[in-house]
Amino acid sequence: MKKVLILFAHPKFEKSRANAALIERLKDKAHVTFHDLYEHYPNFHIDVQREQELLVQHDIIIWHHPLYWYSSPAILKQWKDLVLEFNWAYGPKGKVLQNKTIFNVITTGGSREVYCSEGYNTFTINEFLRPYEQTANLCGMRYLPPFAVMGTHHLSDEDLLNYANQYEQLIDLLQGDFNATQLSNCFFLNDLEILTV
């Protein structure tokens, strides 16, 4: 069974309906490590060695965070800056993360429609997430499209429950024999046929 690491970054988790719903079932799921960055490092004093050990121990990494100003909350940038060291994560000797799978799970206030060339955010989510994609590429990791819960302000509790179910199914799917070809036409992991059925 593949092991999943959820790197969770929300500065005010206690106020987030959407994320509370998404996380609730995963917290105690077998082979899933839920790692709450803001709770562990309230002073941003990230323990690099511990973080690297966690990465080594897991096969699938998830950057789980709300999308703030088209990017992640600050601590996730801090995490990247400190943990993904030269000649460890990348560079001539940096091969530790190779062939691991990584992707973003995001929540956004704006709906899917506003993230496109015609919408007021002009660019797509995939375009905004390019820095994460390229980070994964440089580290030799397999980057998947994001799993996105969008328009959270207008989602009912039932909607959120559905998303939470999808999230859990997705993790089950990835832990099993997942075939990447299924992703050929997906901009979002949400679009996987298996999940939408």
Binding site: K15, P73, T152
Partner: peptide
Amino acid sequence: IVAYDNHWDSDHIRKQL
């Protein structure tokens, strides 16, 4: 008790919306 940092509070934003 958490009266600050409203921008990180989606409830707060929703109410304003």
